[in-house]
Deep mutational scan, measured.
Amino acid sequence: NITYDSTPEDVKTWLQSKGFNPVTVNSLGVLNGAQLFSLNKDELRTVCPEGARVYSQIT
């Protein structure tokens, strides 16, 4: 699982392990844990089509 202390590499690995598509992995894999957790559902949806699914995994 990812935490606020996760590195971008951790986030990328976590996204891949959850089966998100490469677009999602590449879009969000540049963020660290704190940055990812700071995004709300609408912001995640704006960044990638699977944003709502990512949001449900981190809340």
Rank of each mutant, 00 (worst) to 15 (best):
Q57L: 13
Q35D: 11
Q16F: 11
V25A: 06
T46M: 12
T3W: 08
S27K: 12
V54S: 04
S27W: 05
L15M: 05
N26S: 13
F37T: 08
R53Q: 11
E50C: 02
C48F: 03
T13E: 08
L28M: 03
E43W: 08
E50R: 01
L28D: 03
K12L: 05
N21S: 12
V25I: 13
L44K: 01
T46C: 07
V25T: 08
G51R: 02
E50G: 03
E43P: 01
A52R: 11
E9I: 05
T24H: 03
T24A: 03
I2W: 00
L15W: 00
L39K: 14
W14E: 04
V54Q: 03
E50H: 01
L36I: 07
G29R: 05
S56D: 13
E50Q: 11
V30N: 15
R45M: 04
V54T: 03
S38N: 14
Y55G: 08
D42N: 10
S56Q: 15
I58V: 15
P8Q: 13
I58Q: 04
T59A: 14
G33P: 01
P8Y: 03
L31I: 04
F37V: 07
T3V: 05
T7D: 11
K18T: 09
L15E: 03
L39C: 08
G51S: 06
V30G: 14
E9L: 12
P22H: 12
V25G: 03
V11Q: 02
K12C: 09
V30K: 15
L28E: 01
G19D: 04
Y4D: 10
A34Q: 12
L44A: 11
T46G: 14
Y4T: 15
N26A: 14
T3R: 09
D10P: 01
S17Y: 13
I2K: 01
T13D: 09
F20R: 01
S56P: 05
V54F: 01
Y4C: 15
N21H: 01
S27E: 14
F37P: 04
L31E: 02
L36N: 01
T13A: 14
E43G: 09
L28Q: 03
C48E: 06
W14D: 05
W14N: 04
V54I: 07
T24C: 05
G33E: 01
Q35K: 10
P22A: 13
K18Y: 09
R53D: 12
L39N: 04
L15T: 02
V11A: 02
T13Y: 07
L28V: 11
G51W: 05
T24G: 02
S27V: 11
N26W: 05
S17E: 15
T46K: 14
Q16S: 11
S17A: 14
D42F: 06
P49R: 07
K12M: 08
T7Q: 10
S27T: 13
N32Q: 05
Q16K: 13
S6I: 00
L44Y: 08
S38G: 12
T7K: 10
V25K: 04
L36A: 02
L31T: 03
W14Q: 04
T13N: 06
T24M: 00
L44S: 03
L44M: 15
S56C: 08
S27H: 06
N21K: 14
K41A: 14
P49F: 05
N26Q: 11
T24R: 01
D5M: 10
E43I: 08
Q57H: 14
F20I: 02
L15R: 00
L36Q: 02
P22M: 11
L44W: 07
Q57R: 09
E9G: 10
G29K: 06
D5E: 15
L28A: 02
L36F: 05
L44P: 01
S56V: 06
T59R: 08
A52Y: 10
E9D: 14
I2G: 00
V54D: 03
E43V: 11
V23L: 14
V25M: 08
L36Y: 00
Y55H: 09
P49E: 14
E9C: 08
L44D: 05
L36K: 03
D42K: 15
A52F: 05
S17F: 12
L44G: 03
G29L: 00
L39R: 09
T46L: 10
T13I: 09
P8V: 12
F37M: 15
D5Y: 08
S38P: 08
G19N: 15
V23M: 13
T59G: 02
K41C: 08
V30M: 09
V47A: 15
Q16N: 06
S27M: 13
I58G: 04
T13L: 12
P22E: 15
L39G: 03
K41H: 14
L39F: 11
E9V: 10
N21Y: 11
F37W: 06
D5S: 12
D42P: 07
G19C: 06
T24P: 03
S6C: 02
D42M: 08
V30C: 14
Q57F: 09
E50N: 02
L39I: 05
Q35I: 02
D42W: 07
K12T: 10
K41Q: 13
S6V: 00
L39A: 10
N26P: 00
T24E: 03
C48S: 09
C48G: 05
E43M: 06
E50V: 00
E9K: 09
D5N: 12
V23E: 15
T7E: 12
W14K: 04
K18R: 14
E43R: 12
V23T: 14
L15D: 00
D42C: 08
V25Q: 13
Q57W: 10
L28W: 00
T13W: 07
P8N: 09
T46V: 13
E9S: 13
T13G: 11
W14Y: 08
A34V: 08
L15G: 01
N32Y: 00
Q35W: 00
R53M: 13
Y55K: 06
V54N: 02
I2S: 01
L31D: 01
N32V: 00
Y4L: 06
R53H: 11
I58E: 02
T7W: 03
A52T: 13
W14L: 03
S38A: 14
D10E: 15
C48A: 07
S6Y: 01
P22V: 13
D5I: 08
G33M: 02
R53S: 13
A34K: 15
E43S: 11
D42G: 10
L36V: 06
L39M: 15
T7H: 09
V11C: 07
V11T: 04
I58R: 06
P22K: 14
Q57D: 15
Q35S: 13
P49W: 05
T13Q: 14
T13M: 11
A52C: 09
R53E: 13
Q16V: 13
Y55M: 08
E9N: 11
D10L: 06
S27N: 08
Y55N: 15
S17K: 14
N1G: 07
R53K: 14
I2D: 00
F37S: 06
I58W: 01
W14V: 04
V11M: 01
Q57M: 15
G33Q: 00
G29E: 04
I58L: 15
K18I: 07
K12S: 11
L44R: 03
N32I: 00
Q35A: 14
V30T: 15
T3E: 05
V11W: 01
D10H: 13
Y4P: 13
K12W: 06
S56W: 08
I2E: 00
I2A: 00
L39S: 08
T3I: 01
L39Q: 08
F20C: 04
T13R: 10
G33T: 00
D5C: 06
N21L: 10
N1M: 10
V47I: 15
G51T: 04
G19Q: 10
G51C: 01
L31S: 02
T3A: 06
T59S: 15
K18N: 13
S6Q: 00
D5T: 11
C48I: 06
K41F: 14
L31M: 15
V54C: 05
